[in-house]
């Protein structure tokens, strides 16, 4: 554990808490892509199956349970409790276009051809693109509430901090994982446009609005 990874994990937890609080306090999930939230739930379910097979540390196990529980809660709030506020019409990204290529890629490029390892690889690939329905929703409506922008910034920062973690681990521990690094770079790049808008608009107190 190094400072970059810990900061990344904190940023990830922070993002999830912001999202849950936003939905709970406003009693609404307007502006949030349910499809991205379903993809994240699939990511955690397929990655954290190793809760039952491999013990790394109490910290890791607690975080895994936390991510599973909070993503389940988010999907529940969006599709059951506050279903009426869910923005179906704008959330029209076809997730099979992400699920199928990630599954095929995981079957072909993985560290080891076992069920657990292919599922882990699938979850890494899927996580890298799982935000696309959310970014698509923002681009369709042309704007995002500030709280949604803060959520996206914290979520994007998490993988960017992990990139620093991987650089650190390569230099200090000679440890690297090409699949995680490649997917992490893709994931971070997808947020770049958003980061730019966040820094130039939201941090200056303006609403995130895309040029018409």
């Amino acid at each position: 554990m190094n400072i970059f990874r810990f900061a990344g994990d904190l940023s990830h937890v922070f993002a999830i808490i912001i999202l849950l609080l936003k939905i709970w306090k406003t009693r609404s999930c307007a502006g949030i892509s349910g499809k991205s939230q379903i993809l994240f739930a699939v990511v955690y379910l397929t990655r954290y199956l190793d809760l039952f097979t491999t013990y790394v540390s109490l910290y890791n196990s607690v975080m895994k349970v936390l991510f599973l529980a909070t993503s389940g809660a988010t999907v529940y709030l969006m599709y059951v409790k506050f279903k009426a506020t869910y923005d179906h019409n704008h959330d029209s990204f076809r997730i099979e276009f992400l699920l199928v290529p990630c599954a095929l890629l995981a079957l072909v490029i993985n560290h080891e051809f076992t069920v657990m390892e292919v599922l882990w690889t699938f979850s890494i690939y899927l996580e890298s693109v799982a935000i696309l329905p959310q970014l698509f929703l923002v681009s369709r409506t042309g704007e995002a509430e500030s709280i949604t922008s803060h959520y996206l910034f914290a979520l994007g920062s998490y993988r960017a901090l992990y990139l620093l973690n991987w650089v650190y681990r390569y230099m200090v521990e000679s440890h690297y994982d090409l699949i995680a690094i490649f997917a992490g770079v893709v994931q971070t790049v997808l947020y770049c446009d958003f980061f730019y808008l966040y820094i130039t608009k939201v941090l200056k107190g303006k609403k995130l609005q895309l040029p018409a």
Partner: peptide
């Protein structure tokens, strides 16, 4: 070098 399929990150 660690085994690449040992995942100790989240």
């Amino acid at each position: 070098d660690k085994d690449q399929s040992e995942h100790d990150e989240l």
